[in-house]
């Protein structure tokens, strides 16, 4: 007898359990919900591991001489977060944005697209994607005498030479070029 009265009073106090969502704009969203993919263009190196592991083939990377464009089509993305798992730069994340309903006219417009511009190597002039500063700081954490801005502007092979020169005690290559 008292048991059901307790339930009755509790339900009266709590109110309806229906989420008033479509009638009011806000609703609850878990913090770690896997929603739309977001690309951090400061970190993306265009290595292509995301499009390789993408189950649904939603990611496309278009490489050009002066940069690369990475595109995620939300209408093909299955929110498995394999790209986030395998991205070596942690450039991909999934924000908890689940608002995905759209009209047919916008079908090919729901994309996440970022274009990353390349810069010429300061020694050989080859177009390269400069390494993000945060990554360089990690890479050269034990070499605090290195000028990171100079290293950042070098292509991988020139950087290798530069590192070899430094270990041999020779002057940096860029200075040599300035003399020529």
């Amino acid at each position: 007898m008292a048991g059901f009265l307790k339930v009755l009073f509790r339900n009266l106090l709590q109110g309806p359990s229906t989420d008033p969502f479509p009638l009011v704009p806000e609703t609850f969203t878990p913090d770690r919900l896997r929603g739309k993919v977001v690309i951090n263009q400061d970190l993306c190196m265009g290595c292509g591991i995301c499009s390789y592991v993408c189950v649904a083939g939603a990611i496309n990377i278009e490489k050009r001489e002066d940069g690369h464009t990475i595109t995620v089509w939300h209408n093909s993305c299955c929110r498995c977060a394999a790209c986030r798992q395998y991205c070596p730069m942690h450039a991909i994340s999934l924000e908890p944005n689940w608002h995905s309903a759209h009209a047919e006219a916008d079908k090919y417009k729901v994309i996440e697209q970022k274009t990353i511009a390349y810069e010429p190597c300061s020694v050989c002039g080859k177009m390269i994607r400069p390494v993000p500063e945060a990554t360089l700081k990690k890479l050269y954490v034990h070499n605090d005498d290195v000028d990171l801005n100079h290293v950042r502007s070098l292509c991988p092979s020139c950087r290798q030479l530069e590192d070899a020169r430094r270990s041999a005690g020779l002057p940096p290559a860029a200075e040599k070029k300035a003399v020529e």
């Binding site: 209408n75 993305c77 929110r79 498995c80 689940w98 309903a101 009209a103 047919e104």
Partner: peptide, 9 residues
């Protein structure tokens, strides 16, 4: 007419 992507939405 309307698309709602998600796996599942």
């Amino acid at each position: 007419d309307v698309n709602v992507p998600g796996c599942p939405p």
